[in-house]
Amino acid sequence: MATGGRRGAAAAPLLVAVAALLLGAAGHLYPGEVCPGMDIRNNLTRLHELENCSVIEGHLQILLMFKTRPEDFRDLSFPKLIMITDYLLLFRVYGLESLKDLFPNLTVIRGSRLFFNYALVIFEMVHLKELGLYNLMNITRGSVRIEKNNELCYLATIDWSRILDSVEDNYIVLNKDDNEECGDICPGTAKGKTNCPATVINGQFVERCWTHSHCQKVCPTICKSHGCTAEGLCCHSECLGNCSQPDDPTKCVACRNFYLDGRCVETCPPPYYHFQDWRCVNFSFCQDLHHKCKNSRRQGCHQYVIHNNKCIPECPSGYTMNSSNLLCTPCLGPCPKVCHLLEGEKTIDSVTSAQELRGCTVINGSLIINIRGGNNLAAELEANLGLIEEISGYLKIRRSYALVSLSFFRKLRLIRGETLEIGNYSFYALDNQNLRQLWDWSKHNLTITQGKLFFHYNPKLCLSEIHKMEEVSGTKGRQERNDIALKTNGDQASCENELLKFSYIRTSFDKI
């Protein structure tokens, strides 16, 4: 039985969820670079991206490699990797027998973001014989899940209580170790020597080791999670996991709180800001991140802002960003909400898709409305799209047979046209069989910064309504002859009103 693990408890099935942008060198404390989270699957090609990484700022997932063999891993080693800020997950990587050479110096898994409450997941690794993470000293947050690894031993010899604050939620089941077939031998045991430290858990006094050649490092209890030197002297209180010299914040392997210019500090002093819960960055760093993602459509890219001495992905609820200094300031009234469309555009074809934009005031991208039916549609669209004030790209209304009016965009005031449909149009209306009105132009103002209007096959939309939009939106004169079809717009509506004058002759039985 794995020490510190839980057996036999019912657990939810383990679901495996399925960018080499360097964020800056980590400095003297770390020998390499800070790398983003990685999802490495199918083959070993991307694994080489770990070569210079000291910190993975995010998670590391290595999974679904069915053609790899043990010899493929023999020359692979990433000794610079010290810390993973989120979680480490391995799933069905064939041929991998140990992690001792792959990650010989991995010391800390912070667990800032977890995989279903777990910071370390080893699942269905069919050839893994031992973990071998002999320098792993601290899992700051989260638990361990090690399950269905039929060859995995050296679990009962690990004292997880020396690595985690609590072992109650560890789930370590259905491994070879369960069948008591392992016969784990710690260093020196074969020669009758006791080389590794022994600890007591559940009444068992057991030597602690990761492999037959690597003991588990056990520091004096007084050192807590700070770690200790090879001689057993406690590291500085700002260290986490390990250090090369005692009581020196510049000799830590990793930091308990924050890293700044080669030393570990309790908090980031001005003019620095907390970033990702582990390091200090200056304003320029946060500003660069903001600008890199301002026009990016890459998933996970955030326009970072500053709030409460932190550089964070977005302002919290009730705050909006001051564009001059990136500071989050309290909103006066309802907060603006910028919604970034991942692929640059979004099609609204149902109430469900409209709900995804609920509360958005600025759309960074283009909207395509293609709704053919739905219950209580006008009210639903207004509830979900009615706060949109600005669209950076274009607005396209296409084959939306259920629409009679666009009044559900009740606050839309600006279409920038930074991206144009077919390279020309910022407003595009095609084949809307029941569209009769755009907006009530006596109450609604709309500016279209650039781009043209396109109207074709809107049989109940009168040309007068379209011409009014040209005047109000500032697009009059931009359109070419064929942009607004004269014969297919309003051709099934009563669009022309003329005053009919009647004269009559009164007659009676005795007068003409």
Rank of each mutant, 00 (worst) to 15 (best):
Q245I: 15
S324F: 12
I201Q: 14
V126A: 15
G132R: 01
S77E: 05
L29H: 08
T267I: 01
N42A: 12
I201E: 12
D178Y: 11
H274V: 09
H307W: 11
N150Y: 12
C223A: 01
V55I: 14
L106D: 00
F258W: 08
C186G: 04
G183T: 08
D178N: 15
F66N: 02
C186S: 03
V34T: 07
F78V: 11
Y304N: 02
T45V: 13
S213P: 09
Y304K: 06
E151Q: 05
R208K: 03
V218C: 11
G333N: 06
F285Q: 06
K191T: 05
L44I: 11
P269I: 13
R297V: 08
N322T: 06
M137P: 01
I84K: 00
C219Y: 03
M65C: 04
Q204I: 04
Y30P: 06
I312S: 07
R162K: 12
K148L: 12
K67G: 02
F66P: 15
I109C: 00
T140P: 05
Y304W: 14
L76A: 15
I146P: 00
I201L: 11
Q216M: 11
D72N: 14
M125Y: 00
N149P: 00
E151L: 10
M137D: 03
L63V: 14
E238F: 04
K310H: 05
C255D: 00
D159V: 08
E49S: 14
E33K: 05
F103Q: 00
D248R: 03
L63H: 10
G37L: 01
D248W: 02
S143F: 07
Q61Y: 03
C280T: 00
L106C: 01
P197M: 12
C235Y: 01
Y273T: 05
E147L: 14
L102V: 12
H290M: 13
L120V: 04
V253Q: 03
D247T: 06
V108M: 14
W278E: 05
N117K: 06
V305L: 07
A230L: 12
T211S: 08
I201C: 13
G32E: 13
L50G: 02
T194L: 12
V218L: 10
P104D: 00
G32A: 09
Y304I: 05
C255L: 00
H214S: 15
V305D: 02
E33L: 08
P270C: 04
L260T: 10
I222A: 09
G58C: 01
S98I: 01
C234S: 03
P271M: 01
C186L: 03
H127R: 04
E49R: 15
M137A: 09
D288M: 06
R162H: 11
T189W: 03
C234G: 01
V93P: 00
E147Q: 03
R263A: 02
T157L: 08
Y134E: 08
V253H: 02
P36L: 12
N325A: 15
P249A: 14
N138V: 04
L174P: 10
E238G: 13
P270W: 11
E231W: 05
R141L: 08
I122P: 11
G262H: 06
H48I: 04
L63N: 03
I163A: 01
C196W: 01
H214A: 02
D75Y: 14
A198V: 05
R297D: 14
F91G: 15
N43K: 10
D184R: 12
L327G: 06
L64W: 01
V34M: 14
I56Q: 01
S143V: 11
W278R: 02
C196E: 05
W210C: 03
K67S: 04
G111P: 01
I139F: 03
N43V: 05
S77A: 02
T229W: 06
I82K: 03
F91P: 00
L89H: 02
L164T: 11
N322R: 14
T194S: 04
C311R: 00
Q303K: 05
L240T: 06
G192F: 08
V144A: 09
E71N: 14
D277L: 12
N179S: 05
R256Y: 06
L88H: 00
M83V: 07
L102S: 01
F115R: 04
K80A: 09
H290E: 02
D169Y: 08
N325P: 12
Y134T: 08
Q204Y: 13
Q299P: 08
S112V: 08
D86V: 00
K100V: 13
T157G: 06
P336K: 02
P197I: 13
Y259V: 11
N135V: 01
H290I: 07
K310W: 14
G183M: 04
V34Q: 02
Y30S: 15
E97V: 11
D72E: 02
T68Q: 13
E180Q: 09
V121I: 05
N149R: 01
V206S: 13
L44K: 06
G333R: 08
T140F: 06
D75H: 06
T329V: 10
N117R: 12
V305E: 04
P271E: 05
L60V: 08
C153I: 01
T211Q: 04
C234F: 00
I172H: 11
G203I: 06
S213N: 05
I56L: 10
I185Y: 04
V281K: 02
E97G: 13
C209M: 02
L99C: 06
L29S: 10
L96S: 01
P316W: 02
S225H: 11
S98G: 08
K292S: 05
